[in-house]
Design a protein around this nucleic acid. Structure first.
Length: 814
DNA sequence: GAAGGTGTGTTCTAGACAGCATGTC
DNA sequence: CTAGAACACACCTTC
């Protein structure tokens, strides 16, 4: 189909596409147009990655906007939100406005309601629905990217419910769902009343194969010699083969050496493999490439002072890299960019890269096809869908003649098994996971709180519009889970059933009457839903805070030894008790409280950890909020301990312990610290709202704990760290130079400030300006040589990562 | 006697969304 | 209950 023949699209689009070199649509795109994407028709497009899904989405959105509408593009990852934003910004020249909204980022320049196309994560959209964003009703087109993720137990239900809600809000909404090739795309189409485009057409051919022994066995039945040299691992042989230039019989260069993407099953394996493959890659680098790689390596070292950072930089110097979720954001982006620029020749990655941003490669090697899964009790094979997603990264459009995806077999039996299991197999069907309890807990409360259902029957009726309902005939299960969760939500005071106190419901049941089933969210329930908390997390936090309030009150009472003589004295005493002293709450107690909620992904207890944290628990038990579970309640006690480990990490961070020390002490990567801190920040913010909602005196302490963890500083630096451009390190340096807070920073002698900031003039000027200094100029100022500046190398510091100073005594037991 | 190979026991395990109000070194 | 790569370490071989 020629781009000139597109119905319903804006006039400028055909020329725009031609400028991009697009004259003709790919077959699946043409199919989507025939099915009516540009005319408001619902579409499910199940087609491979890199076969032009984005253009299908763009056709739908642009034609919707051309008709005076407004489009929403839902992505599963924040990183994809920014990638799509960059892509859609090409249309700004035609007057379209693009907006982005994720948890940590919202595009500026006006209200989202004024944008023509908004990109957001599914959770953000869910949250917008819960908080009643008015512009959602103006949507005429919604695109859901990677919709096969409805199969995900954790996050799938959110997408499923959100789509159902958007469609109910606006019955005329055009729904475009983009999916990987899956077994049951037709079921998705039925659910969404959509036309189905199901195709495995790809713009570049993808050849799948399995390497075993000295040969690569390709799916078409052919074999290619791919020799494993002395002591080399098969993966290294495949990577080396990819690096070599190919020539035809006449000696002409057919194809220059290419890059490989190697998928492995653990972070450690990724790092080890990258280190080893470096020696495979190095001989193939030009000196120019080596110099550029050295620059990238230097940037990587600049991102953080950790071992991970050093290891990554070492690998990159050799032209190899690793990629996993333990990397800091900066690390990830540097690796992805260097790989896209063909500078880094091999990336060894965990599945982060298969689901994440677009990083195609000449060849993909799936080395490990089993992954540890604690719940299943051992190694479990990856799903076909997952492996196909990885293999689909092979082949860069316009750059490679074809892509190759290689599985690695270690035995002849495995060779056969891999062909059966992955090369020739169709992906699994996608199944809704909505009926699982944690998902129901959250979404029932949200559905009631935001007014989508006001009764049990209304709730069930709404749930009929989900994929779950369309995939099952067994209505009994759904009803049972709904009732269980309603009871749970009522018991925790998030919901009122029948406007009553819980007795009414069971009474009506036993009397055999028609169940009076009105549902209403309590004020607390509304708060929990709009905070986007799992109700179970909210319940845990509320219990913990109430427990603290109670015990604080008791200790106040116990202090007054006299006993009460009159009623008024009793009242006074209770009032005093009611104002429990927030200073009694330790930061650790609060960190532990949020770390044990289901919204915090806890750290793993390693061997030896159990003993260590049992000791820690014994020493600091009275700081924790709520009663410690008995050691015989194995699971809960285990959770309590790993929450303590997580809480200790947060405490260290808020105690200004060096990043390097933390990564080593807890066996995590720099990116994990950021992740934990971010989650804790969010949960403590939610805890702050809950604390005021349930009327405890803890709000102030919670707020302080949150600010400390946000900036990673001790109490005395909270004010300084609030200045833009001042983080934990600069705040500490300024403090050590005698500058205690923002006001003192404004009045401080410039030479002192400059010296504290290690003579960086530009930085010092920025900092002073942000602190509100009248004349921040550092011109002609020389650093004060009397100021002791903290050494920049963390390895020179003592274990606490805090320079020995006057406040040494406050360090405590260390 | 250093470098390297082989054998054995031990250790450890993927990912990442959200409130609210603004910004690390 | 289920795996398997990587590593640390001991021990041996080889030049």
């Amino acid at each position: 189909m020629d781009v000139a023949d597109l119905p319903g699209v804006p006039d400028w689009l055909p020329d725009h596409l031609r400028d991009d070199g697009i004259e003709e649509l790919y077959p699946p795109q043409a199919e989507a147009v025939d099915a009516g994407v540009t005319q408001g028709q619902n579409i499910v497009a199940a087609i491979p990655t890199a076969s032009g899904k984005t253009l299908v989405a763009e056709l739908a959105m642009l034609s919707a906007v051309a008709r005076g509408g407004k489009a929403l593009y839902i992505v599963p990852l924040r990183a994809l939100a920014s990638e799509k934003q960059a892509e859609f910004e090409q249309f700004e020249q035609y007057g379209l406005e693009i907006g982005v909204s994720t948890g940590n980022y919202e595009s500026d320049g006006g209200w989202l309601g004024d944008k023509d196309i908004v990109v957001a994560t599914s959770e953000k959209v869910d949250s917008l629905v819960r908080n009643d964003a008015p512009w959602l009703e103006e949507l005429t087109c919604v695109v859901s990217d990677e919709v096969h993720l409805v199969d995900d137990g954790q996050r799938g239900p959110t997408l499923e419910v959100t789509l159902a809600k958007l469609r109910r809000l606006n019955p005329d909404l055009q729904t475009v769902a983009l999916s990987a090739t899956i077994g049951n795309a037709d079921e998705l189409a039925t659910w969404l009343d959509a036309e189905l485009v199901d195709s495995d057409w790809r713009p570049i051919e993808l050849q799948k194969g399995v390497h075993y022994g000295q040969a690569l066995h390709v799916e078409d039945g052919s074999q290619r010699r791919l020799a494993v040299q002395n002591n080399e691992k098969p993966t290294a042989a495949v990577v080396r083969d990819t690096l070599q230039d190919d020539y035809d019989e006449d000696g002409n260069l057919v194809e220059a050496g290419g890059s490989s993407l190697v998928f492995v099953n653990s972070r450690r394996n990724a790092e080890a493999a990258a280190g080893r493959l470096g020696s495979t890659v190095r001989p193939h680098l030009t000196s120019e490439e080596e110099a550029e790689l050295a620059d990238v390596a230097a940037e990587i070292r600049g991102v953080s002072d950790t071992e991970t950072s050093d290891d990554l930089a070492d690998a990159v110097e050799q032209g190899a890299a690793f990629h996993h979720a333990g990397l800091a954001r900066g690390h990830r982006e540097l690796v992805e960019d260097a790989f896209r620029d063909r500078l880094v020749k091999v990336v060894c990655a965990t599945p982060t890269l298969a689901a994440g941003v677009n990083t195609p490669s000449r060849r993909v090697v799936v080395r490990d096809w089993r992954r540890y899964d604690g719940t299943a009790g051992g190694m479990q094979p990856l799903s076909v869908l997952e492996v196909h997603q990885m293999m689909g990264r092979a082949g860069r459009p316009g750059m490679d003649p074809y892509g190759e995806a290689v599985l690695v077999a270690n035995s002849h039996d495995e060779l056969d098994e891999l062909f059966e299991r992955y090369v020739w197999a169709d992906p699994e069907p996608v199944r809704s996971k909505l009926a699982a309890e944690p998902a129901m807990r959250t979404h029932i409360l949200a559905t009631v709180a935001s007014g989508f259902a006001r009764s049990r029957s209304g709730l069930l009726e709404f749930l009929e519009e989900t994929l779950y309902a369309s995939q099952t005939d067994e209505t009994g299960r759904l009803e049972r889970v709904v009732d269980d969760m309603l009871t749970y939500l009522e018991r925790n005071e998030f919901l009122e059933i029948d406007g009553g106190d819980g007795e009414a419901r069971s009474a009506s049941k036993s009397s055999g009457d028609e169940p009076r089933d009105e549902l209403d969210a309590t004020s607390l329930g509304h708060t929990v839903s709009s905070l986007y908390l799992d109700p179970m997390s909210a319940a845990e936090i509320i219990d913990g805070l109430r427990d603290w309030q109670r015990s604080a009150a008791e200790s106040t009472t116990a202090d007054s030894d006299g006993g009460f003589t009159t009623a008024s004295e009793l009242a006074d005493e209770q009032a005093a008790a009611g104002e429990a002293d927030p200073d009694d709450i330790s930061a650790l107690g609060l960190y532990h409280l949020v770390s044990r909620t289901p919204d915090m992904y806890q750290l793993y207890l390693r061997s030896g950890d159990r003993e260590e944290y049992e000791m820690e628990l014994y020493e600091r038990e009275d700081e924790l909020l709520g009663p410690t579970p008995s050691e015989f309640e194995d699971d809960r006690f285990e959770d309590w301990l790993s929450a303590l480990k997580t809480a200790r990490l947060l405490e260290d961070w808020a105690d200004e312990v060096e990043e390097d020390t933390i990564t080593e002490r807890y066996g995590v990567g720099p990116g994990d610290i950021r992740g934990k801190v971010e989650t804790a920040e969010w949960l403590l913010g939610a805890a702050e709202s809950l604390a005021s909602e349930i009327d405890t005196d803890a709000a102030r302490a919670v707020s302080e704990a949150r600010i400390r963890v946000e900036h990673g500083v001790r109490e005395e630096l909270v004010d300084l760290a609030g200045v833009r451009g001042v983080g934990r390190k600069r705040a500490r340096r300024l403090f050590e130079a005698g500058i205690g807070d923002r006001a003192e920073l404004r009045d401080a002698a410039k030479p002192v400030v400059l010296a504290a900031l290690r003579g960086r003039r530009k930085t010092a000027e920025n900092v002073l300006e942000n602190a509100g200094h009248r004349d921040p100029s550092m011109e002609g100022v020389e650093p004060d040589s009397d100021v002791d500046v903290l050494d920049d190398d963390p390895r020179d510091r003592d274990e606490d990562g805090v320079e020995t100073g006057e406040d040494q005594s406050s360090l405590g037991d260390f």
